[in-house]
């Protein structure tokens, strides 16, 4: 939201500044957290696969700004932004990604399966497209249980060729589910451009199911937030919605991917689209500096706390394979 876009009164402009600064702050948390993870991964401090969403922060932050605590979201493998934007505690986030017992999932899930049911974050997911039906089921629960909640499925354009998207669009329309489909369209599906993977068009696809769909500049957090508040409200009324957010993936598919398949000239233009840089340009330098210092302190504290976490043990892990009823055999 450009400071000078509309000549509103001074008070509402000030409110908007405060809101934008808050969105910036949330984006910066995601950004700094992921930058830190990138470093820690390179240092060998974070094991496994991590998929970073640097460059895409405006989407989860903008969408989640329109959500309530009881609303739910199903995420994908690139889910740090979704988790943190929905309110997952930063310290328990780092503890989890570092595989610590005190992590939000006890170190079982890690980056790719992080979840926090307490804030309605139903899980990152290692399987492309798998979160879509889960979000539909969550929407069904909202509907039957009359919670007033909305379920959001975040998926990338790489999931557009998965059957579950098509099936879930159909089911959501058929059952009038309170559900929002958010496509983070970064142009890439793993190591290949979406243009070589999908001939369809998401907006037209949604239309084929009678679902309202809109495209928004996914690097403009205020625009995403504004669009989200509209589609979330519609979804809450039982009209499932599709929101396509056009954005950029700056890092590789996963950390360590050198992205040789990408045009270097293309990569060089990415900073111009950076949602944080664009947002900061609309904020006062002092505010940005203050928020930056605050966020960096929080990240440093969270990392320090995570480093002090303990290693989980297999006995406790085994105990969570099943609910504490009859023992299973294996």
């Amino acid at each position: 939201m450009a400071r000078n876009a509309k000549g509103g009164d001074a008070a509402s402009a000030a409110d908007r500044d405060v809101e934008l600064l808050e969105l910036y702050r949330r984006m910066l948390i995601v950004r700094r957290a992921e930058e830190r993870l990138s470093q820690m991964f390179a240092d060998g401090e974070v094991p496994g696969f991590i998929h970073l969403s640097i460059g895409q922060e405006a989407v989860p932050v903008g969408v989640c700004a329109a959500l309530r605590l009881e609303d739910t979201l199903a995420s994908n493998h690139r889910g740090h932004g979704h988790a943190l934007a929905k309110g997952l505690d930063l310290e328990r986030f780092f503890l989890e990604v570092m595989g610590r017992a005190e992590g939000v999932c006890g170190g079982r899930g890690g980056s790719m399966h992080i979840a926090d049911m307490g804030v309605g974050m139903l899980g990152a997911n290692g399987i492309v497209g798998a979160g879509l039906p889960i979000a539909a089921g969550s929407a069904l629960a909202h509907q039957v249980r009359r919670t007033g909640g909305v379920a959001v499925a975040f998926f990338g354009d790489g999931a557009m060729a998965e059957g579950t998207l098509h099936e879930t669009l159909n089911l959501a329309a058929l059952w009038h589910l309170p559900m929002l489909f958010v496509c983070e369209d970064n142009g890439w599906g793993e190591f290949s451009p979406t243009s070589r993977q999908f001939t369809g068009d998401l907006i037209a696809l949604a239309g084929a199911f009678g679902i309202d769909a809109a495209t928004v500049d996914g690097n403009d957090v205020a625009a995403v937030a504004r669009a989200a508040s509209k589609v979330v409200a519609a979804a809450r009324d039982g009209c499932p919605q599709v929101l396509r957010c056009v954005t950029n993936r700056v890092h590789g598919h996963y950390e360590g991917d050198p992205q040789r398949y990408r045009d270097p000239a293309d990569l060089e233009t990415l900073p111009n689209h950076d949602p944080l840089r664009r947002c900061a340009a609309k904020l006062g330098a002092d505010d940005v500096a203050k928020v930056t210092a605050e966020v960096e302190d929080r990240i440093a504290a969270a990392v320090a706390a995570a480093r002090a976490g303990t290693e989980p043990d297999i006995a406790r892990a085994r105990a969570d394979v099943y609910s504490p009823c009859e023992a299973a055999h294996g």
Binding site: P133, A135, G137, S138, A141, R145, A151
Partner: peptide
């Protein structure tokens, strides 16, 4: 998949 989401949802 929807059954999983519904079950988690109560």
């Amino acid at each position: 998949g929807a059954a999983v989401g519904a079950a988690i949802g109560g």
